[in-house]
Design a protein around this nucleic acid. Structure first.
Length: 889
RNA sequence: GGGUGGUUAGCUCAGUUGGUAGAGCAUCGGCCUUACAAGCCGAGGGCCGGGGGUUCGAGCCCCUCACCACCCACCA
C-alpha cells in the first residue's frame, strides 16, 4: 500500500481496511500466475466449486472459500505457483425457475416468450445479477484469479461439453432410450436419481378387490395410489404363496374398466406386505417398470407430464392426480370394490429444487452408461486420488458400486443444448459437435435439434479441465492439471466429485485432483441444517458487517476439523473478534516502541536475554506446526496454535517482558526492538492465510516494509536453528512459574495488586539462582515487587505466605495481621494434591512389570517427578509447620 | 434393511503413533498495572455414555449394550 501509515487508529475498523486491500490485490493482479513461467517449488491449483449464479453466499460457501484461500495463500508463501480458478454454475433448473418466477409476476410464462426470447431473458438476468455472487466471493477475501474466471455456459465450456457428449456417444457410452424417470411436474423435466430427496408422508393404504374373470373369486391388492389403476397391466403374486397359487395364469377384471389383466408370479413380491398381491403399473412406478420389462407387460400411461389424468383414466380425465386418487377411491367404494383402507406412512420423492412430489414417468431420455466410467473412477482411489478424511473413501466406493445409468437430459430451456439432430426426412439421428447443414444419410437439409438440454452436473463434471481451456492443449492444462486438491462438503460427493473423477479419467487420462478434502457442513447452534424455511440462517455478509471478514474466517478455520459438522453461532464469531482486537493492539504497542526506520539487524544467535531466546524458540515451534497442520488439512490445529502463540505467549508474556528493556534504552532496547520486530513480522506472515486483511494492514504500517508492502507476496519465513535456545526456554519457564506462584498467593490472600511486595526466593540450586538473578527485573515488574532477595539461606520471616514453584521456594513476607488458619488450609490443599500425584506415581514405580516393560524414558520421567514432588512437599511441610505454630500462639 | 459419525468440564468441542485429560464461552474472586475492560491477574469444575476384554498402563485398541445425528436403498 503506497500510503503506509505509521500509526494505527485505536480500534480496528474492518470495513475501510478490507475495501482498500481488496482493491489493492485486484489492481496488482496479485493472484494471476503466469502459466508459462516455471518455479522450482512447482505448481498448486484449485478450481472453485462453482456456486450457482442464482446463489447467495451462505455459510457453507464462506467455509469452503476460507479453507481454499488458506491453502492457496499458504502455498504461495511456500513459493509455489498458485492458480485458483473462480467461476459460476449456470444451474439449469434453479436459474430457469428464478426467471420464470419473474415472468409470472408480469403475468407471462416462458411459452409466451418462446425458447429463444426466454433464453435471452435468462442471459440478461445473469448479466444483471450474476455479479452478486462474484462480489460476495470477493468480500470473503478469496485470492482467486479473476482473469481466468469461467461460467459453465460460456463458449469455451460449451465446446468442451459438445466434444465430450459426441465422443461418449460414439464410444457407445451415451444412449437414448425409453425409460421410467423421476419427473417433476412443476419443473417439467426429468431428474437424476440423486436429485430426488425422500421424505416420509402420512397417507393411506387402499385394499381393492380385483374380481376374477369368471367372477368366482377376487384378489385383493394393496396400493397407496389407486388412481394409477387405470394403467395396471397385471397383478403379481409370489410364486410360492399358497393363498394365490390357484390364481396364477388366470385373468382378473380391472375395476371401473372392462379390461382383463393377467395374474403373474414373481419372487420380487413380498408376501408379508399388504395383501401379498401387487398391482403392476409399469408406466408409473420404478419397480413395476422393471417387472413389466421382465414379463413383457404393456405400459399404459395414465398421468400426463403435468400431473393430470389423461384420457385413459376414464371419467377422471383432466383431474390432478391427487384429486383423482380420492375420486377413484370413492368410485371403487361406491361400486363395492374397496375392501378397506388403512393409515399408512411411506416415503415419497421430492424435487430437490422445488420440492414438488416427483412422479415416476415414462419417457424417452438420454443416458450415460456409467458402469465402465465408474469402475475407473473407483480404482483410482486411493492411489491416484486421496480422500481426506479417509473415512469417506468407503462411502465413495459404496456409491460407485451401486451406481445406475445417469439420466442426463432435462426438458428445460436453460442449459447446454444436446448436440443431436433428427432428420425430418429419414428420421435418423445425427450426433456431432456442430449443427449439420445436411443429413449424412439422406442428404436432406431439414434437421431438427433435440429440444432437451443437459443436466447441469454434466458440464460441472468437466470443470477441472474445461476451465483450463480443454480441448485445446493450453499451458494452463500442462501446468495446473491435475489440480492439487478439491475442497468441498460431502453433500455433493456424488453429484459432483464422483462425476468429475469419471470424466477427468476418461478424457484427460488423469484424475482431476490429487486430494479431495471433505469439510464440514455448517449447521446452526442446535445442529440443524441452516435453511431459509427454518429461519436459522446466519448470513455471512451480516457477520462480515458486524465483526469483519477476518473474524468470520478465523472462526470457520478454527472449527473446520471438528468432525462432520460445525455448529455455528454468532457468539463464536464475536469471540474471535476479540482475537483480532488483540492482534491489533499488540501491533499498536509494537509500533509505539519501534522507530521510524526498521531496527538495525542483529545476530539473533548472539542475542542475550532468555525472554528473547525463549520467544524465538517458541516461534520456530509454531512455524513447524503451522506448516505440518496445513499440509495435513488440520485447519483447526493451525488456527489454535496461532491463537495460543499470539495471545498466551507473545502478548501475555513477551510483550510484558520487554517493557523494562524498552525503558532501559541503549543496546537492551535495540535488541528488544529487533526481536520484537522480527517475531511480529513472522507472526503476521503465519496469520495471513487465515486473516489476510488485518495482517496486511498491520504489515504495511510496520517500519521496513516500504518496498515489500504486499504481505500476500511475502514468503514463508525460513526456519531458524534455535536448538541452542532450549536451555534458555526452560529457564524462562521456571521464572514464569515463580511469577505465577506470587500472583496466586496475592490473589488467594486478597492482596491488592497495587501493594508492592518484598519477595524472597530460595533457589533450588546454583543454576536456578543464576537464572532467577538474570531475570530479576522481569520478576520485579511482573510480580509487582518492591524488593527481591534471591538467597538459598535467607531467613523466612515469621509472618509470610509461601509456595514451591519449579523447586524454588517462594516466600512472601506479610505485614499486619495474617489469617494463619487460611494459610495452613491453603498449604494443606496443595500438599494433598501433591501427595495424591506422588502416591499414584510411586504405585506405578512399585510395579515391577511397569518398570520392566515401559519405555525407559517414561520410567525415568516418573522417577524424576517423584523426586521433585518429594522435595517440594518437604519444603511446603516446613512452611506449613511455621504457620501452625503461628496459629497456636 | 445396509452404512457412517457421535456420546469428554454447565455449554460448544479439541485430544496427532496407548503413558490416567485441554481450549473457548459460561461461573466465582481481585484489578482501569500508560497496547488492549473487546482487557489483565487468579480460582473452581470431569469415575472421558454403560458393561466386558487386551495391556505394566486405555479417552485412545477389541467386543457388547444404550442413546443421538446423518447417509444410501426400499417402501404395493
Amino acid at each position: 500500500m503506497s500510503d503506509a501509515r505509521k500509526e494505527l487508529p485505536k480500534g480496528y475498523e474492518p470495513e475501510n481496511v478490507e475495501a482498500r486491500w481488496r482493491a489493492f490485490w485486484e489492481e496488482n493482479k496479485s493472484f494471476s500466475p503466469n502459466a508459462e513461467a516455471l518455479t522450482p517449488q512447482g505448481a498448486y491449483s484449485i478450481v472453485i466449486p462453482p456456486p450457482n449464479v442464482t446463489g447467495n453466499l451462505h455459510m457453507g460457501h464462506a467455509l469452503n472459500l476460507t479453507l481454499q484461500d488458506v491453502l492457496c495463500r499458504h502455498a504461495r508463501q511456500l513459493g509455489k505457483q498458485v492458480l485458483w480458478v473462480p467461476g459460476e454454475d449456470h444451474a439449469g433448473i434453479a436459474t430457469q425457475n428464478v426467471v420464470e418466477r419473474r415472468l409470472k409476476e408480469e403475468g407471462k410464462s416462458r411459452h409466451d416468450l418462446g425458447r429463444e426470447a426466454f433464453i435471452e431473458r435468462v442471459w440478461a438476468w445473469k448479466e444483471e445479477y450474476g455479479d452478486n455472487i462474484r462480489r460476495q466471493i470477493k468480500a470473503m477475501g478469496a485470492s482467486v484469479d479473476w482473469s481466468r474466471e469461467r461460467f459453465t455456459l460460456d463458449e469455451g465450456l460449451s465446446r468442451a461439453v459438445r466434444k465430450v457428449f459426441v465422443q461418449l456417444y460414439n464410444e457407445g457410452l451415451i444412449y437414448k432410450g425409453l425409460y421410467i424417470v423421476n419427473w417433476c411436474n412443476r419443473c417439467h423435466t426429468a431428474l437424476a436419481d440423486d436429485e430426488v430427496e425422500h421424505a416420509p408422508q402420512k397417507t393411506r393404504l387402499w385394499l381393492i378387490n380385483y374380481p376374477l374373470e369368471d367372477g368366482s373369486a377376487s384378489l385383493t391388492i394393496a396400493t397407496t395410489r389407486p388412481e394409477t389403476m387405470f394403467g395396471d397391466s397385471a397383478v403379481a403374486v409370489h410364486p410360492e404363496d399358497e393363498r394365490y397359487k390357484a390364481f396364477i395364469g388366470k385373468k382378473v377384471r380391472l375395476p371401473l374398466t372392462d379390461r382383463l389383466i393377467p395374474v403373474i408370479a414373481d419372487a420380487y413380491v413380498d408376501r408379508e406386505f399388504g395383501t401379498g398381491a401387487l398391482k403392476v403399473t409399469p408406466a408409473h412406478d420404478h419397480n413395476d417398470w422393471h417387472l413389466g420389462r421382465k414379463h413383457n407387460l404393456e405400459c399404459i400411461q395414465v398421468i400426463d407430464d403435468d400431473g393430470r389424468m389423461n384420457g385413459k383414466a376414464g371419467a377422471f380425465v383432466g383431474l390432478p392426480k391427487e384429486e383423482a386418487r380420492e375420486k377413484t377411491a370413492a368410485a371403487l367404494e361406491e361400486q363395492g370394490f374397496l375392501k378397506a383402507t388403512q393409515d399408512y406412512e411411506n416415503s415419497v420423492g421430492h424435487c430437490y429444487r422445488c420440492h414438488t412430489i416427483v412422479e415416476p414417468h415414462m419417457s424417452v431420455q438420454w443416458f450415460v452408461s456409467v458402469k465402465p466410467l465408474a469402475e475407473a473412477a473407483r480404482a483410482a482411489v486411493p492411489e491416484k486420488m486421496r480422500i481426506v478424511p479417509e473415512s469417506w473413501t468407503k462411502t465413495y466406493y459404496n456409491w460407485m458400486d451401486g451406481i445406475r445409468d445417469w439420466c442426463i437430459s432435462r426438458q428445460i430451456w436453460w442449459g447446454h443444448r444436446i448436440p443431436a439432430w433428427t432428420c425430418d426426412s429419414c428420421g435418423k439421428l445425427v450426433v456431432q459437435e456442430e449443427a449439420p447443414d445436411i443429413c449424412p444419410h439422406c442428404k436432406s437439409t431439414t434437421l431438427t435439434q433435440d429440444p432437451d438440454v443437459l443436466d447441469t452436473w454434466f458440464s460441472s463434471a468437466l470443470w477441472p479441465f474445461s476451465t483450463m481451456g480443454w480441448p485445446d492443449e493450453t499451458s494452463e492444462l500442462k501446468r495446473f492439471y491435475p489440480t492439487s486438491v478439491l475442497v468441498t462438503a460431502f453433500d455433493i460427493l456424488f453429484f459432483w466429485v464422483a462425476r468429475m473423477m469419471m470424466m477427468g479419467l476418461h478424457f484427460m487420462k488423469e484424475v482431476p485432483f490429487r486430494d479431495c478434502y471433505i469439510h464440514a457442513l455448517v449447521r446452526d447452534a442446535q445442529g440443524k441444517k441452516m435453511s431459509k424455511s427454518t429461519g436459522n440462517v446466519i448470513n455471512p455478509l451480516d457477520m462480515i458487517d458486524r465483526y469483519g471478514t477476518d473474524s468470520l474466517r478465523f472462526t470457520l478455520t478454527a472449527f473446520a476439523a471438528m468432525g462432520r459438522d460445525i455448529r455455528l453461532s454468532e457468539e463464536r464469531i464475536e469471540g474471535y473478534r476479540h482475537f483480532m482486537n488483540k492482534i491489533w493492539n499488540a501491533s499498536r504497542f509494537a509500533l509505539m516502541n519501534l522507530d521510524e526506520q526498521a531496527p538495525a539487524p542483529l545476530d539473533l544467535g548472539a542475542v542475550s536475554g532468555p525472554h528473547h531466546r525463549w520467544i524465538l524458540h517458541r516461534l520456530e515451534a509454531l512455524k513447524a506446526e503451522q506448516k505440518a497442520a496445513i499440509a495435513e488439512y488440520r485447519f483447526n490445529d493451525a488456527a489454535q496454535t496461532l491463537y495460543k502463540f499470539v495471545w498466551n505467549e507473545f502478548c501475555d508474556w513477551y510483550l510484558e517482558l520487554i517493557k523494562p528493556d524498552m525503558q532501559a534504552g541503549g543496546a537492551r532496547k535495540a535488541a528488544a526492538q529487533y526481536v520484537l520486530w522480527t517475531v511480529l513480522r513472522e507472526a503476521l506472515i503465519l496469520l495471513h492465510p487465515i486473516i489476510p486483511f488485518i495482517t496486511s494492514e498491520v504489515w504495511a504500517a510496520l517500519p521496513g516494509t516500504e518496498h515489500e508492502s504486499n504481505l500476500a507476496a511475502m514468503p514463508f519465513p525460513p526456519a531458524r536453528d534455535t536448538s541452542a535456545y532450549m536451555d534458555d526456554a526452560a529457564r524462562m519457564e521456571m521464572v514464569q512459574a515463580a511469577i505465577v506462584a506470587v500472583r496466586t498467593i496475592r490473589a488467594e490472600l486478597n492482596i491488592a495488586p497495587s501493594l508492592k511486595l518484598a519477595l524472597i526466593i530460595r533457589p533450588a540450586d546454583e543454576a536456578a539462582r543464576a537464572a532467577i538473578e538474570e531475570q530479576r527485573e522481569a520478576i520485579m515488574v511482573l510480580a509487582r515487587l518492591e524488593s527481591l532477595i534471591i538467597d538459598a539461606s535467607a531467613e523466612a520471616p515469621r509472618v509470610c505466605a509461601s509456595d514451591v514453584a519449579g523447586g524454588n521456594e517462594i516466600i512472601v513476607p506479610l505485614s499486619g495481621a495474617v489469617d494463619f488458619a487460611a494459610e495452613v488450609a491453603r498449604l494443606d490443599k496443595e500438599l494433598l494434591k501433591m501427595d495424591k500425584e506422588r502416591a499414584m506415581l510411586s504405585g506405578k514405580l512399585a510395579n515391577e512389570n511397569y518398570v520392566q516393560k515401559a519405555p525407559q524414558d517414561v520410567v525415568a520421567r516418573d522417577r524424576a517427578r517423584v523426586a521433585e514432588l518429594g522435595d517440594a512437599e518437604k519444603k511446603l511441610q516446613a512452611l506449613r509447620e511455621r504457620f501452625r505454630q503461628g496459629l497456636q500462639e
